[in-house]
Simulated scan of single mutants.
Amino acid sequence: MNVRDAIKTRTSIRAFLDKPVSEEQLRELLDQARWAPSGGNLQPWRVHVVMGAGRDRLVETVKQAIAENPFANEAELAIYPEKLSEPWRTRRFEVGEEMYALLGIPREDKPARIQHLMRNYEFFGAPVGLFFSVGRQFDKGQWAHLGMFMQTLALCATDMGFATCMQEAWAARAKTVSAFLGLKDHEQLYCGMALGYADPSAKVNELRSSRAGVDDFTTFITE
């Protein structure tokens, strides 16, 4: 698979097969992704992998935290601005409605929508979860480095036949997850990523969000 094919093939998968991924495969994947670009070669990212019994313990820990306080918001980061302006508000709304349409969940069925949202905290059934953190000493530049690393990892995973879903939803339970992972005070959790094999029979995996055209986000200065 070439890079162009990997970019176009990669998409957020929200239903995975019950098929294991080995530690050896994960080490190979991370060994490829570590060559992602990083300004000053700082490589500020930290990766925390949960799989097997460790993954299951994390899922149960977070489920218990949600049951005890379902409305708690442990997020340190605002995943989206409080008031999105256009065209960003419409983009977010449309992709959500497209997903729920594939799932057959109407807008008025709030319980079903919440139930699907809670699937985030089970990695959508994926056997592996990855979490990403950076040191609190770092600023926006190093957060950009983390993003480049995550994209590189997702593309390498696609090349290896895996499916992924980058999950900012975990930020809402950052305190619980950070404690489970043993993060130090100087480390800040960003998000998670589900990794495994896509379920080809799941309707939700047919979702393919649109992208703005080149002229919508590019300015060419030629003189």
Results as ranks from 00 to 15, higher is better:
E122I: 04
F131K: 00
N120D: 08
L181H: 03
T176S: 07
L102T: 11
E82L: 12
E97T: 13
L102E: 12
T164D: 06
D109W: 04
H116D: 07
F162I: 11
V177D: 02
P106K: 14
A112V: 01
R92K: 08
I114R: 15
Q115M: 14
I114A: 15
K83E: 14
G129T: 11
V59G: 06
F131T: 00
F138P: 00
Y100V: 01
T90D: 13
T61S: 15
W88R: 07
E60W: 02
M118N: 10
R91D: 10
A78E: 13
M166E: 10
T61D: 14
F71E: 12
L84E: 04
T90S: 14
A101N: 11
C165M: 04
T61L: 09
R89E: 15
A65K: 10
Q151Y: 13
E74Y: 10
R113Q: 11
E122F: 05
F124Y: 00
G147V: 01
L155W: 02
L103T: 03
A179Y: 03
T61M: 14
A78H: 10
M150R: 01
G161I: 08
A157P: 09
T152F: 08
S85M: 07
H116E: 06
N120R: 05
G147T: 00
E108M: 04
S133E: 07
L77N: 14
E94D: 15
E168A: 11
G104W: 12
W170N: 11
T164Y: 06
L181R: 05
M99K: 00
E97W: 12
K110E: 15
W143A: 04
K140N: 12
I114Y: 15
E68F: 01
A78K: 10
C156T: 06
F138K: 00
H116I: 01
A101R: 15
M148W: 03
F124T: 00
W170Y: 13
E122C: 01
T158L: 05
K63S: 13
F124C: 00
C156N: 09
R173M: 10
S178K: 00
L155S: 00
Q137G: 11
I105G: 13
V62P: 07
R173N: 06
F131W: 01
I66K: 06
V177R: 01
A78R: 08
A144I: 09
L102S: 09
A154V: 01
E68P: 05
E86N: 07
V95K: 10
G129Q: 04
I79G: 09
H116C: 02
D159Y: 06
V95M: 15
E86T: 04
F71I: 08
I105S: 12
T152P: 03
Q64M: 11
D159Q: 10
D109C: 05
L153I: 08
E122G: 05
V62F: 08
D159L: 04
A169N: 04
V134C: 05
L181E: 02
F93K: 14
G125Y: 06
P87S: 04
L130N: 05
A67E: 15
F149R: 04
F180M: 08
T176C: 03
D109Q: 08
S178C: 00
A169C: 02
N120Q: 07
L117D: 13
K175C: 11
Q142P: 00
L181M: 04
T90E: 15
A171H: 13
T158K: 11
P111W: 09
C156P: 00
G125P: 03
N73C: 12
R92A: 04
T176H: 05
R107Y: 05
